[in-house]
Lab assay of single mutants.
Amino acid sequence: MQRVNMIMAESPGLITICLLGYLLSAECTVFLDHENANKILNRPKRYNSGKLEEFVQGNLERECMEEKCSFEEAREVFENTERTTEFWKQYVDGDQCESNPCLNGGSCKDDINSYECWCPFGFEGKNCELDVTCNIKNGRCEQFCKNSADNKVVCSCTEGYRLAENQKSCEPAVPFPCGRVSVSQTSKLTRAETVFPDVDYVNSTEAETILDNITQSTQSFNDFTRVVGGEDAKPGQFPWQVVLNGKVDAFCGGSIVNEKWIVTAAHCVETGVKITVVAGEHNIEETEHTEQKRNVIRIIPHHNYNAAINKYNHDIALLELDEPLVLNSYVTPICIADKEYTNIFLKFGSGYVSGWGRVFHKGRSALVLQYLRVPLVDRATCLRSTKFTIYNNMFCAGFHEGGRDSCQGDSGGPHVTEVEGTSFLTGIISWGEECAMKGKYGIYTKVSRYVNWIKEKTKLT
């Protein structure tokens, strides 16, 4: 034993070699072989497995989906700052455009905790909710729209109204504003409101030439003092309507412009014939205590009207009353817009006519005020429907199939267009061939041609 100890002390290297040989010859039971080890760690190889990531292109799944990435790591994937920024906006807080917040056709661009709407022409605001041009839906104005110097929408209202708090709607500024039905039992019968379409306001006024200088022999019209197929109006439903009495009662109609003036057809009036105007009328054979009678003290036909040349060209006249009318729910003026808007309103496509005229061709006159909704007829169809001249200051309205029309005794009465609950004068009943005849239409004086003249002559002093 002493000898062994001496050998170990003198030859430590020998001992180490012996131990190493023993270990190498022993069977290893701690580690699995290569094949079995792979069965336990069965993990798919990654895209760049075996390579240094710093030297390969980034992978979106590896960089940002398996674990949260930084902007720089995302930049490695896209290799483009702009594309990385677009991805980053949604990656950080989701897609803010998912709810489609942009209105009126706006395009949404996502941002971090926010979004941006790219608005089409005519709109602005956070969600493109603000109209900035009158060309689109009248700028959301209830009545009139004008573009300011910086191309912003400025709404306005006709006389007797003021802008509401929203700067879009119009509200009454006087007790009985024009064009409004205020009798409670008839307010439910107000005709369907007309909503502004998209309009090209630059070209809204037709490029028409008034044929002022045409000389033409007097034409022989049949029954051209021209509501057939209409309905009984309720008291106060058309408070701007008046009836004219002269040699015979209810020979023509008219509309209240203001307390002192009536507008009617020029062919209705004769110099030297006494005319009485009755406002607030409903049943011409009954006294309903809503009527107001006034005498006409002055007749002003349009300066281009000449019955000797043509009885229905420039067929418009103004009547001055001896005493002002007292405005109330049964006696209310009709609204008159400017030339541009009167023309736009007419193009809405349908209007209402009213009167006490004959209820059928050569038949009896109506006792109760009649009204009828009539569609506008395109000019080409209008011209083809008659052998008589249709001037540019006239328009056609009615039904091709016949059966409904204005008729004798309705002449001078109103053709009105309702705009968001307020009625505007767009025409004056003038003439036609018979009444409600198939293929024939009622012919009306186009008020847009005469609004400046009306307003100039009827100013209240």
Rank of each mutant, 00 (worst) to 15 (best):
N245L: 08
V263D: 01
V195L: 12
L189T: 08
I256D: 00
E231G: 11
C170K: 02
D212L: 07
P235H: 07
M394Y: 04
E231Y: 05
I454D: 00
W118D: 15
P239F: 01
P101T: 03
E61I: 15
F123P: 01
E320Q: 06
Q143K: 00
T461D: 14
K146H: 06
N222F: 10
K455G: 04
G363R: 06
A173L: 08
M65S: 08
Q96H: 09
Y305L: 02
N147D: 13
N328D: 09
A380S: 09
V447I: 10
L32K: 15
R180N: 02
D198R: 12
K446I: 00
A266N: 02
E340A: 10
N48C: 04
I300S: 03
C252Q: 00
L130W: 07
S365G: 06
E54N: 07
V278G: 03
T215Q: 09
C407W: 14
K137T: 04
K51Y: 07
V419F: 12
S148G: 08
S350F: 12
K362A: 14
G58S: 11
Y371C: 06
I316N: 00
S187E: 08
D110S: 09
V154D: 07
R294W: 01
L163F: 00
F388Y: 14
A250I: 07
C141I: 00
E116Q: 11
A250C: 07
E456W: 07
I17C: 07
H267T: 05
Y305T: 02
S350N: 13
F196E: 10
N310T: 07
N295L: 06
N313W: 09
V92N: 10
H361N: 15
Y47N: 15
N283E: 06
C268E: 01
N166D: 07
P120L: 08
I210K: 08
E286Q: 11
P324Y: 04
K68I: 09
T276H: 08
R358Q: 12
N328Q: 02
C128L: 01
S385R: 13
N48D: 15
T133W: 04
N258I: 00
G58H: 13
V195S: 13
R62K: 04
K45V: 15
L346V: 07
V451N: 03
R162W: 05
N393W: 05
N147T: 14
D150Q: 09
E54Q: 11
N135G: 09
I443V: 08
C170S: 00
L19C: 07
A265K: 00
E320C: 02
A380E: 10
T264V: 04
T29Y: 12
A233L: 07
R180F: 04
G403L: 10
D410G: 06
V195N: 12
V269D: 02
E323M: 13
R294K: 03
M437K: 13
N328R: 01
E61Q: 15
K146P: 01
V263H: 00
G413Q: 07
D93S: 06
K45I: 15
L346R: 04
F395V: 02
E285D: 12
G94H: 09
E27A: 08
G21I: 15
P235F: 08
E61T: 15
I15R: 06
Q241H: 12
V154Y: 11
F71I: 15
E35I: 08
T381K: 05
E67T: 05
